[in-house]
Amino acid sequence: MQKIIRLLFLPLALLASSAALAIIGPDTLARNTTNEVIQIVKQDDDIRNGRASKIYSVVETKILPHFDFQRMTKLAVARNWNTATPEQQDRLVDEFRALLVRTYAASLSSVAEYKVDFKPLRMAAGDTDVVVNSEVSKPGAPPITIDYRMEKMSDAWKVYDVMVDGVSLVTVYRNSFNSEVRKGGIDGLIETLSRRNQRK
Rank of each mutant, 00 (worst) to 15 (best):
S53C: 06
A78K: 08
D44E: 10
H66Q: 01
N35E: 10
R79E: 14
W81A: 07
I38D: 09
I38V: 14
G50M: 13
Y56G: 02
D44L: 10
A52D: 12
R79V: 11
R51V: 14
A52R: 10
D44P: 04
N80S: 13
N35A: 13
F69R: 02
V59S: 03
I55W: 07
K54L: 15
K62E: 14
R79F: 13
E36G: 13
E60L: 10
Q39W: 06
A78C: 02
K74S: 11
Q70E: 15
T34C: 06
W81S: 05
R48A: 10
H66A: 01
T73K: 09
T61P: 01
I47R: 00
K74Y: 03
D68P: 02
I55P: 07
K62R: 15
A78N: 13
T73V: 05
A76T: 11
D68C: 05
V58M: 05
Q39R: 15
E36S: 12
A52Y: 09
A52P: 00
D45C: 09
T61G: 00
I38N: 02
Q43G: 08
K54I: 05
I40L: 06
S57A: 12
N80C: 00
L75I: 14
L64N: 12
F67R: 02
P65N: 02
Q43T: 04
L75D: 10
P65K: 02
Y56H: 11
D45I: 15
Y56M: 12
Q43R: 11
V41C: 08
R48Q: 14
Q43C: 06
D44H: 10
D45M: 14
T73M: 03
I63Q: 12
K74M: 12
I38F: 10
V37N: 06
Y56V: 04
T61H: 00
I55T: 10
D46K: 15
D44I: 06
N80F: 14
P65C: 08
I63A: 05
P65R: 03
I47T: 05
R51G: 01
D68F: 07
D44N: 14
S57D: 14
E60D: 15
Q39N: 15
